[in-house]
Amino acid sequence: MSEEQSLLEFPCQFAIKVMGRTSPDLDVLVVEIVRRHSPDLREGAVTSRPSKAGNYTAITVIIDASSREQLDAIYRDLTASPHILMAL
């Protein structure tokens, strides 16, 4: 989909949602990956929530997205990590 066809208007705030198995380093890993493409994360941009049984953690990172290409690169890097089960 080209940027002209996108439903998003850039720049915009965009929430990236990630799920992985709970580990002490999962938040750090997700932030490192996102910061490669969006180095200026704001204070409070990252939130996490464990699943009911605590086996999985959902992490949300809100970024200032500048383009569709930036978002695509973030999702490619997130889904390439073996520690991340899903990225939305």
Rank of each mutant, 00 (worst) to 15 (best):
T47L: 11
A15L: 06
D27Q: 11
E32S: 14
Q5K: 15
A15S: 13
K17W: 04
G54I: 09
L71T: 00
V34T: 12
A58H: 04
T60W: 03
R68T: 08
P82E: 07
R68L: 14
P50T: 01
I84N: 05
G44T: 13
T60Q: 12
M86L: 13
V46A: 10
Q70E: 12
L26F: 00
S67F: 09
I63R: 03
L26E: 07
P24H: 01
I33G: 09
D77A: 01
V46Y: 10
S51P: 06
G20E: 01
R76L: 04
T79P: 00
P39C: 10
R36S: 04
I16K: 00
H37E: 00
S6H: 10
L71I: 11
V34W: 09
L7G: 15
A87E: 07
M19A: 00
R49E: 11
R21E: 07
M86I: 07
N55A: 08
D64H: 15
H37C: 07
V34S: 12
E4P: 02
G54M: 06
H37A: 06
E69T: 08
V30K: 05
I63Y: 07
V61Y: 13
D64F: 08
A58D: 03
N55S: 14
M86V: 07
I63S: 07
D77W: 00
A15R: 06
P50V: 13
M19Y: 00
S6F: 11
I16N: 00
L78G: 03
R76Q: 12
P11M: 02
S81D: 09
S66H: 14
C12M: 08
S38Q: 12
R21W: 04
S48N: 10
T79F: 05
V18M: 04
V31A: 15
T22F: 11
L26T: 06
Q5H: 13
L71M: 06
A80M: 01
R21D: 07
Q13I: 02
M19P: 00
R68H: 14
L29V: 03
A15G: 05
E3C: 08
L88T: 12
T57E: 13
L78D: 04
S2T: 15
D25Q: 13
M86D: 00
V31P: 03
V46D: 12
K17I: 14
P11T: 08
A45L: 11
Q13D: 15
A65D: 05
L85C: 00
L26D: 01
A73E: 03
R49D: 02
R42N: 09
I33Q: 04
R68E: 11
A15I: 01
A15K: 09
D64S: 15
T57R: 14
T22R: 10
L78W: 01
L29I: 08
I62V: 15
P11W: 11
Y56M: 11
K52A: 01
M19V: 13
T57A: 09
R35G: 12
R36H: 09
P24S: 09
L78P: 01
